[in-house]
Every structure is written in C-alpha cells, then in structure tokens.
Design a protein around this nucleic acid. Structure first.
Ligand SMILES: [Mn+2]
Ligand SMILES: [Mn+2]
Ligand SMILES: [Zn+2]
Ligand SMILES: [Zn+2]
Lengths: 137, 137
DNA sequence: AGCCATAGTGAGAATGATTATCAAAGTCAT
DNA sequence: ATGACTTTGATAATCATTCTCACTATGGCT
C-alpha cells in the first residue's frame, strides 16, 4: 500500500533525513528554519517540492493544524493513526482495528466506494500535564 | 456539550440560515458567492466573523479540504462524524460508538488527558458511482 | 424628534502559506 | 568539453484569512 518508492533528489533525501530525526510533525516553514539552523540552506521551493514527492509516495504523513497549515512527519510504512500532544507535539503512532472496521461498515451501509478515512486523537501527554511548561511547540 | 447558545448578529443569522439549506460542507468563499447569487451581499469579513462565532459554539462544524481551505456545515447538536462523497460532496452524519471507545482507550493507555478526536470517512456515493458525471462539487 | 453610546458592517490593506516562474547551476552520457 | 536534461532557489504571483477603521445601524434616553 506504500506506493512504489519514487526517485528522490539529493535535496529530497536530506529533507527526508531531517524529518527522520524529528519525532513530531513539522511545518514546511519549520523544516526550512530547522535545516537553516543546521547550516544547510535549502530554498523553500525545494522543500515544498520534496514534501510533495514524499507525501505522494506515503513516505511522509501530512495533516492540517487548526489554522490550516500543513504538518509533515516521517512515519512507519503501514497504515496507522496518531495520538498527538497539544502541548509539546509529541506524536505516537497507533493502530485502530476497530476504526478500520467502523469505517468499512459505515461506508458499506451507505453504498460508498473507494473509501478513505482519517482518525487522529489529540490530548495532553503525561509530561505536559505534570510540568507547568510544555517542552516545545 | 453544544456550548451555551451565543448571541448572533443579524448577518450571522442569515449566514446560519444559508448553511441550513445546504447539505454539504461549504467554504467561506462559496458562502460569500452563494449569498451574493441570492442577491444578498455580505462582506467577506462579516462572513468570516459569523463563521468564527458559529464554530465556537459548535453550531457549525468545520473541517479542512486537502488544499487547506476550511469547510463549514450546519450539523446536528450532538457529537458525530461524517461520511463525505468525494464526487458531489454529499455529507451524511454518522455516529461512532466504537470510535469513541477506541479514542478513549488509546488515550488512557498513554496517559493523555483533555482528549479530542477527529474521524471522517471519504468515498464515492452510489449516485456518483453510477453516473458518469458527479452532480456538484 | 434629536442626541449619544455602542455594536455591526464591509471595502480595502495586510498577512502568510503555498505555488508558479524561470534563469542559473548541476549531472551525465557521449 | 558539448549538449540534453534535471534540479535548485530567488523572486513574484496566488489566494484564503485576518486586520483596519471609517461609516452605518440600533436603541435608550430626554
Ligand atoms: Mn485507519
Ligand atoms: Mn467521535
Ligand atoms: Zn506533551
Ligand atoms: Zn456523490
């Protein structure tokens, strides 16, 4: 299901590596600044291009922040959902057999085909709950 | 859970009525043009303001299109999810006891508090599947 | 009716993420 | 090295959303 691995440019590989080191979702702008902070300057266009390529193959997951900005994360190969801390952004990959069944059952009941679904959980992680200050954004 | 009904301006009521007549999600821009087509001109600022108020009370649901644009819909009072046709936009409100349980279980297992969740299903409705041409966008 | 305080409106400017341009720089087989 | 092709990135263009702020509508009061 993880689309045929696509060719990746030199920059694309760097950007994928950068995402690999992050545990949380990051926006294109954050990636841009994060790489720059490491001394490696890429153009924004290059970053957006790489991100487009990476998401099209499923190598990178994307979701939308409440303000509409797109967030990217390098994830596991297989289908999964996310548990995300609203405080620090910590992200845990989760499975959801019951969700898969639910989506399938509902869709079938209404005669829908070519089904997709989204399901994410947001909350405050234990660290952020005890600490006054969340670690990061 | 449906927040204390908030005061609504005259324009806000009109905009809520407009959404009431629609079965699908609509963007702010579509609402703007739709109202204009009915001869009633509202400023975009007014529409965005009303939408903000309506979503804050939970009277109107909001979700993000894949391109990031926000979509709004007048929905039922109680908590629910959506089954949305990718062809015509037809939207069906669905319940998901199993999803509620899943979210709760996962969150508890990882010690997360203040839980929220999102879960939507997308597909092609029977009408759009048989017809060559989807009705609307 | 006339006056005044306050809330609501909307044209237009500002913001900010994303995309489009396109010329310059890199790659690579011959 | 030459030429064909790909990649890059500074910059401009888009476009949804928010911000400004002068103007209008409303409602209480005399
Ligand atoms: Mn799933
Ligand atoms: Mn639910
Ligand atoms: Zn946290
Ligand atoms: Zn349909």
């Amino acid at each position: 299901m993880a689309g045929g691995r696509k060719f990746m440019t030199k920059s694309g590989i760097e950007i994928a590596k950068f995402l690999d080191k992050r545990e949380s979702f990051a926006s294109a702008q954050e990636i841009f600044l994060g790489l720059r902070a490491e001394g490696r300057n890429f153009g924004l266009a290059t970053i957006y291009r790489a991100l487009q390529s990476l998401t099209s193959t499923g190598e990178v997951d994307v979701l939308r922040r409440s303000d509409g900005e797109a967030l990217y994360r390098k994830c596991g190969e297989d289908h999964h959902h996310h548990l995300i801390c609203k405080g620090c952004g910590k992200t845990i990959e989760i499975e959801g057999v019951s969700v898969e069944e639910w989506a399938h059952t509902i869709a079938e009941r209404h005669g829908f085909r070519e089904i997709q679904h989204s399901a994410e959980i947001f909350g405050i992680c234990p660290d952020c709950f005890t600490q006054a200050e969340p670690k990061r954004r």
